[in-house]
């Protein structure tokens, strides 16, 4: 390590030179610069202290407090809005339920009304039908009665004719009785 030893020698030389130049090898131990450094350090610290404590710290703490306040307010407002939204939703749900109930009620009413009308109409129709049926039966009975009378008359006439054609003398009373008896039979 030839270069190592030479460098060490040089370092020692340099140290010696430095020691000659400034009184001590380490600049940190050069006491002639201490008053200067201490004076300027104190100036620096005082300036920083006043800049921070008079301007920066009140300003930043005010900003932080304001921000905290704003955030708290915003959170409160958000909470309020959320509650409002929940209330609105509940009202909506209630309205929906009411509307459903109303609708089903209306439907039921309409159904009942229709049913009632239907029943009346049905009754009317039934009555009309039964009236018609009775009329028709009466008409049929009349027609039948008419027909029986006609048949009786025709039968009497025919029997009278037949009897007279046979040369006999038709006894109207006997013929009628016979025809009537036959008709019944």
């Amino acid at each position: 390590m030839a270069s190592g030893t030479t460098s060490v020698e040089h370092a020692a030389d340099a140290a010696a030179h430095g020691a000659e130049a400034s009184g001590a090898g380490m600049p940190q131990l050069d006491f002639s610069t201490f008053p200067n450094q201490i004076f300027w350090l104190l100036v620096t610290l005082v300036v920083i202290y006043f800049a921070l404590s008079r301007i920066a710290i009140p300003r930043i703490s005010a900003v932080l407090a304001e921000r905290a306040g704003t955030i708290t307010n915003d959170i409160a407002a958000a909470e309020e809005l959320k509650q409002k939204a929940e209330a609105a939703e509940a009202a909506y749900q209630k309205a929906l339920v009411d509307a459903r109930a109303e609708a089903s009620r209306i439907v039921a009413e309409a159904k009942a009304e229709i049913q009632a009308e239907l029943d009346i109409e049905l009754k009317k129709a039934d009555a009309a039908i039964s009236a018609k049926t009775a009329e028709s039966e009466k008409a049929i009975a009349e027609i039948r009665a008419g027909a029986v009378k006609s048949v009786t008359a025709v039968a009497k006439d025919a029997a009278k004719e037949i009897v007279s054609a046979m040369g006999g003398k038709a006894d109207a009373k006997a013929v009628t009785a016979a025809v009537t008896a036959r008709m019944k039979g």
Binding site: S7, A14, G18, G25, M26, Q28, P35, N36, I38
Partner: peptide, 24 residues
């Protein structure tokens, strides 16, 4: 021939203007 180290020279306090002695 060799290297010369002055690792502590960076810490020397010296006047910024001129070359006089260092007063407070």
């Amino acid at each position: 021939t060799g290297l010369v180290f002055h690792p502590l020279d960076q810490f020397i306090v010296k006047p910024l203007f001129g070359d006089g002695p260092i007063h407070w």
